[in-house]
Amino acid sequence: MIDLHSHILPGIDDGSRSLAMSLDMARIAVADGIEVMACTPHIYPGLYMNATAGITAARDALQQSPEEAGIPLQLTIGADVHLVPGLLEGLRAGTVPCLHQTRYLLLEPSHHVAPPRFEESVFQLVAEGYVPVITHPERLTRVEDNYAVFGNPVRQGCWMQVTAGAVTGVFGTRAKYWAEKFLGDGMTHILATDAHSAGRRSPVMSKAREVAERLLGREEAELLVRGRPRMIPDNAVPSTVPRPPLRDAPRTGWLRGLFGSRR
Score class of each variant (00 low, 15 high):
Q63I: 01
P97T: 14
G86V: 07
K181Q: 11
A148Y: 12
T52S: 15
P132V: 11
H42M: 09
Y104M: 07
E89L: 12
T95C: 09
V154F: 12
H136L: 09
M37Q: 10
K207I: 00
N146G: 13
A179P: 02
P229A: 09
R263A: 14
D14Y: 08
I12Y: 06
A208V: 02
Y104V: 08
H42T: 10
A114G: 15
L47E: 12
R256A: 12
S206Y: 04
R155N: 09
L105N: 00
P238I: 11
L125T: 06
V96N: 00
R230V: 01
M21D: 15
R174K: 11
I28Q: 02
G78F: 01
R103V: 00
W178E: 01
R174M: 00
M205F: 05
Q156W: 04
P10V: 04
V122S: 02
A127W: 14
P229M: 13
L246R: 06
E35L: 02
A57L: 14
D248S: 10
A198E: 11
C39N: 02
R263F: 09
H82R: 15
V225I: 14
L215R: 08
R59D: 01
N146T: 15
S110P: 08
A179K: 00
G15T: 08
R243C: 10
A57D: 13
R139D: 03
H5C: 09
S6M: 00
M49C: 13
I232L: 12
T141P: 00
V131M: 02
H189G: 07
P244F: 03
L62G: 03
Y44V: 10
T56D: 13
A164Q: 01
Q74P: 05
V81Q: 01
D80N: 09
A114E: 10
E108L: 05
Y104D: 04
G217S: 06
I190Q: 01
T135Y: 02
G129D: 01
V225W: 05
W254F: 10
S206P: 11
D80H: 00
E68V: 04
M21E: 15
H5M: 07
A166S: 15
H136M: 04
R201S: 12
M1A: 01
I71P: 01
W159N: 00
A127S: 14
A195T: 11
K176G: 03
T102I: 06
L140F: 03
E222D: 14
R92Q: 15
D14A: 11
A249W: 02
E119L: 05
M21G: 07
A26G: 08
I8D: 04
R103S: 14
D185A: 07
W254Y: 10
H82Q: 07
S18P: 13
I12Q: 03
T252M: 08
P72C: 03
Y48W: 15
R247K: 15
S22A: 15
E180V: 00
H82Y: 14
G15Y: 06
R142T: 13
S16V: 10
R228C: 07
Q156V: 09
G151P: 06
